[in-house]
Design a protein around this nucleic acid. Structure first.
Length: 882
DNA sequence: GGAATCACG
DNA sequence: ACGTACGTGATTCCA
């Protein structure tokens, strides 16, 4: 069936403009609204597959509505020039997309869309109207769905008449009445003063329309009656203003709006003009290559068994090397081969050749740390090569790690092809378009492959000096050489070492859980009166809220929310709810921590080898994958038992765990210089109790468990960039009470308040914040006019220096400890890092030395205004090391 | 492939 | 008034 998409161009452009940061391209054009519109168009075309398409714009400053009410849209802030200059670009873009656009003097986009939907209904076409303006809900019908943008423009809520009834309990036409009563400040429609959405809905549910409300106004009480009667005419006029005019004299028929897909070339050209690099890469027919420019010719040569000497002779001149690694997990990745660059020429060595007798000299060169090497992703390469018995040392520069330090939030485009675009070097295909994506993945034949990989190594050679210079400009040189590059080495060690798992214990634990699960599942089916998939939030929602009629606490964008917070509130309403909570807990353990972990255990060694990602977290933290060993349960006893299966790999060894106590608040004390906080830590006080005393103004004896719990939540909130709403949610108190706590906190911890203000100021001025060791995070949205984006950036400005400095400190400690273990020839191994904790396996004979050495190093690794404190313990497994 | 949920710091 | 806590990864369902 035909499908027509109608877009309210002005509304969407406005939304996009305020939702996205002000992008600037190299010619100084602002392109954020165009960008937003573009992503929306691409998605609509892809997902909706429209047969007809129209974007309508407002035209003329005066519409027929101004004749009725000359204040219409008065008082509205002028369209900023940064936005108005984007409209011509948008219109050009639509042309490239072959999408019809239309505007008509004296009418608004709404009216054009209203008229079109009427026509479409007569022709029995399905219509999707896309807008940010709730007014258009009045157009919804069986054939017409309204997609309202929310949260900027990346998401839409779809409204058909049923959905409108569900949300407002109104018919689409009653939306007009709602506007008539409550008005609309953005269009300067007055409505009835003092009537907001809630009152409007109440009145309409009772009387049905503006006219009926007015007719029964004497039934109303007090102030409300007075207001309604006083503003009766204004309400009627407001309703008229809010009514979309559906008889616009259009010259277009529906058939003229036909859409047959867009012209690749034209769109690519337009994207190039606008400099939409990420979109260019995604386009079919484009591949990260600038469509119009051909790939540069390169000099390259394939090395084979006969001419290995060719490359061996060149070794002294080689800096840049590249190992092509296939697969996300370096512990089980395939290595295709090695490319090297020397003297304006690239060479490709297939991996089989590198492993052969003939290439011994090359392998020795790789393993020799005296030979300096430039590379892309040393950490992953080192791990992958280890499993193929190849050693690599002497890496002095890593463009991947550097790209991360230069911008830790931009993680997707840190590929060689992405970086070469960014630095204005010759274009090359990205991996997805070269190999194919997903099921289409295929390694091409040698000549094609070797050229591709030689291109990569050439770009490493060219990018290295550029990125080194960039590191210097950004004062990140020391961070790179003294911290991140050594950490890469330490991590590779830890990952290769792996952690021994007691698989038998794990399996037995799994069987026990399964018995409990089977029992609970039966109980749930009985209590619910039917069998269903408990894992499906959709089916569960239907059981709880439709069948059992439990009150709806919270909704998600797809339906009812059934998360733990909701279920806890419902637990007293129906027996089944607490069973579901119990089921969820056990099912999580079973799927993620029993079965999931078992899948990752190597059969030969009974070990798991995680992969710590060094370039993912925006704050400088590590993350852990395949499996994630940074989120093994601990908070609940049932889950905590999982830790019993993490055991030492050698006989007579122990698991030893050392964690920083309250490190984030200590860092806050240091960087804020808050005297009270510093004093508290210098006197080694219980920080949450101390906070409770100061915030509630009580003596130590008066701090009960509840006061301490609340103070603890406040402390957490401070570190996250507190808001009264967030705190109220967390503590289940009113917003007012939460605001009062925060006010009290700031009144006492004045230095913290001052820090929060100054760090935000700093972020606004510089565009970035830094950690203790100069790690940087850019916050482009700190100056956004969009409240949400700006607030988010402000909270990040507060949190990143704290979380990031924590990451800095523990990374330094890891390097120092690893060095000491080597220097003193200890057999102890560092196994895991969990943000503020380090886990080791330690032979019995080294227990005493490690028990001293580890906390000594961790506590003295940096001198702050407050002491750092480390708690340490050991046991036969990770559970007992608590 | 995104959304929902839940595990950790 | 706006609509929220900061940072991650794995599993499951479902369009």
């Amino acid at each position: 069936m035909d499908k027509l998409i109608l877009i309210d161009g002005n509304s969407i452009a406005n939304r996009a403009f305020y939702a996205l940061p002000l992008l600037n391209n190299s010619k100084g054009m602002h392109t954020n609204a165009v960008y937003g519109v573009t992503t929306m168009l691409l998605r609509l075309i892809e997902e909706e597959k429209p047969t007809h398409f129209l974007v309508a714009f407002d035209a003329g400053k005066v519409t027929f509505r101004h004749k009725e009410y000359k204040e219409y849209k008065g008082g509205r802030a002028k369209t900023p020039p940064e936005l108005s200059e984007q409209f011509p670009l948008m219109k050009e873009l639509l042309q490239a997309f072959n999408i019809n656009q239309f505007e008509l003097e004296g009418y608004e986009a709404d009216d054009i869309i209203g008229t079109m939907t009427k026509l479409a209904e007569e022709n029995n076409k399905q219509v999707l109207v896309v807008t940010g303006d709730k007014d258009l809900l009045q157009l919804a019908s069986n054939n017409v769905t309204i997609a309202l943008t929310r949260k900027g423009i990346s998401e839409v809520d779809r409204f058909d008449p049923d959905k409108i009834r569900e949300k407002y309990n109104l018919t689409p036409l009653q939306i007009i009445d709602m506007k008539g009563l409550m008005g609309d400040s953005s269009d300067n429609i007055p409505g009835i003063p003092g009537v907001g959405e809630k009152t409007a809905l109440k009145l309409l549910h009772q009387y049905g329309s503006v006219e009926e409300v007015l007719a029964h106004s004497d039934e109303l009480k007090g102030k409300m009656k007075e207001k309604v009667q006083l503003n009766a005419d204004q309400a009627k006029m407001s309703k008229e203003l809010a009514t979309i005019y559906r008889e616009v004299p259009l010259e277009k028929s529906i058939e003229q709006l036909q859409f047959d897909g867009f012209d690749q070339e034209a769109v690519i050209t337009m994207f190039e003009k606008l400099e939409f690099k990420s979109l260019l890469e995604k386009m079919d027919g484009s591949d990260g290559l600038n469509n119009q420019q051909e790939q540069e010719e390169i000099n390259y040569q394939i090395v084979d068994q006969q001419n290995v000497s060719l490359i061996v002779d060149k070794l002294p001149a080689i800096k840049s090397i590249h190992f092509e690694i296939i697969g996300e997990n370096p512990h089980q990745a395939e290595v295709l081969g090695l490319s090297l660059y020397a003297d304006n020429q690239s060479y490709y060595v297939p991996f089989e050749l590198l492993q052969s007798e003939e290439a011994t000299a090359l392998r020795e060169w790789l393993a020799d740390e005296k030979h300096e090497k430039w590379i892309y992703d040393y950490h992953k390469t080192k791990v992958a090569l280890f499993w193929h018995d190849i050693e690599i040392k002497g890496v002095s520069f890593d463009i991947y790690l550097t790209a991360y330090l230069l911008d830790p939030t931009e993680t997707k485009n840190h590929t060689i092809s992405g970086l070469s675009l960014k630095y204005g070097l010759s274009a090359m295909k990205n991996d997805d378009s070269f190999y194919g994506k997903g099921a289409k993945f295929q390694v091409p034949e040698l000549s094609t492959l070797s050229e591709f990989l030689c291109r990569k190594v050439l770009l490493i050679q060219k990018l290295t000096p550029l990125m080194k210079a960039n590191l210097e400009e950004n004062e990140l040189v020391e961070l790179f050489y003294n911290m991140e590059l050594p950490v890469a080495e330490v991590l590779a060690h830890m990952e290769i070492q792996g952690v021994k798992i007691d698989t038998n214990g794990l399996k037995i634990h799994g069987e026990e859980i399964q018995i409990k699960l089977d029992k609970i599942i039966k109980q749930i089916y009985t209590l619910a009166g039917t069998e269903f998939n408990i894992n499906s939030p959709k089916q569960l929602g239907e059981i709880l809220f439709d069948k059992l009629q439990l009150p709806v606490i919270k909704k998600t964008k797809t339906g009812y929310s059934t998360d733990a917070e909701v279920l806890e509130k419902l637990a007293s309403e129906h027996e089944v709810v607490s069973k579901i909570l119990e089921y969820r807990q056990l099912a999580k353990l079973q799927s993620t921590y029993i079965e999931g972990l078992l899948k990752e255990v190597r059969q030969d060694t009974q070990k798991v080898h995680t992969y710590f990602r060094q370039t993912i977290a925006a704050t400088g933290r590590l993350s852990s994958q395949f499996p994630n060993l940074q989120n093994i349960p601990i908070r609940l006893e049932e889950g905590r038992k999982i830790r019993k299966v993490f055991v030492p790999s050698q006989e007579n060894s122990y698991m030893l765990a050392a964690d920083y106590s309250q490190i984030e608040l200590r860092i806050l004390a240091h960087i804020s210089g808050d005297e009270r906080l510093i004093d508290a830590f210098q006197n080694n006080m219980d920080i949450h109790t101390k906070t409770a005393m100061d915030v509630f103004g009580v003596r130590e004896e008066e701090v009960d468990a509840n006061k301490r719990r609340q103070a603890k939540a406040v402390n957490f909130g401070i570190v996250y960039g507190i808001s009264d709403y967030g705190l109220s949610q967390n503590l289940n108190i009113t917003r007012k009470e939460a605001a009062q706590f925060i006010k009290q906190y700031f009144a006492v911890f004045k230095g913290v308040k001052q820090f929060m203000d100054s760090i935000k100021q700093q972020a606004k001025q510089n565009g970035y914040v830094t950690t203790l060791l100069q790690r940087r995070r850019y916050l482009p949205e700190i100056n956004s006019r969009n409240f949400n984006l700006r607030s988010f950036a402000e909270r990040t400005a507060l949190n990143t220096p704290i979380q990031g400095s924590n990451a800095d400190i523990i990374k330094l400690a890891m390097i120092r400890i690893e060095n000491r273990i080597q220097e003193e020839n200890l057999k102890s191994k560092m196994l895991l890092q969990v943000h503020d904790e380090l886990v080791f396996e330690v032979p019995e004979a080294e227990l005493e030395i490690m028990n001293n050495l580890v906390p000594d190093i961790m506590e003295s690794i940096i001198a702050l205004k407050v002491p750092l404190k480390v708690d340490i313990s050991y046991g036969k497994n990770w559970f007992e090391a608590k």
